[in-house]
Amino acid sequence: MATILSLSNVNKNFGALTVSDDVTFDMPEGQALGIIGPNGAGKSTLFNLIGGTLAVSSGTVQFAKQDVTRVPAAERCRMGIARSFQIPHPFVGMSVYENLLVASSFGNSGHHDAKAECRDILDRTGLLPKANRPAGSLTLLERKRLELARALASGPKLLLLDEIAGGLTEAECHELVETIKGIRDSGVSIIWIEHIVHALTAVVERLIVIDFGKIVAEGEPSKVMADPLVQEIYMGISVDDTAA
């Protein structure tokens, strides 16, 4: 399998604070990769570096065999990197359908029929009944689904999903997992940041654990989760979360 994404020694500092610390990994095309780690570990920062929202302090990012380290976010989207935002950023003044049209008009558009394509994505993400409603009228959960739908409409080769399962009920979560499996099976490479580990492991074949900006474990999900270090970090999260 060809490598779709390759990070080499990627660092990101905000002043004295290191949020990405020498991150290196390769990702084969078609893989579904999960990223877990405590809050503030630098997971979303990593997405910002891959998507181009933030510039790396040092290191290189390669996408589809091209060095994209200095390529702006919009251009990376046109090359096929799409993302959902952890905190939804809908275009509130536009309809749900128009939100998708933006992505399909300006993204990695190979769509012959943007309308049919958007309809299909809205259908798959359960937003079809709301297609012509203003995105600003959506509930939080619908906004999360819109994040996914909009990212799909841009025609991605690599999809970055940032905590889209948070707050879902068990049934909704199951539905989402099925949707993401479908996307994976259609050949799109996926990186998914998620706290809900059982949802994540249902989809991904590889897991990366990040703590303090560093990769501390990676590999096959069941083995990674059995790692004592990961258990310590992860149990730490659970305890903190319950306390909060």
Partner: peptide, 15 residues
């Protein structure tokens, strides 16, 4: 309109 509503999202969607 996308820029008006969210510039980071517009940029991330290829604008």
């Amino acid at each position: 309109t996308a820029i008006r509503d969210s510039e980071p999202a517009a940029e991330a969607m290829g604008v």
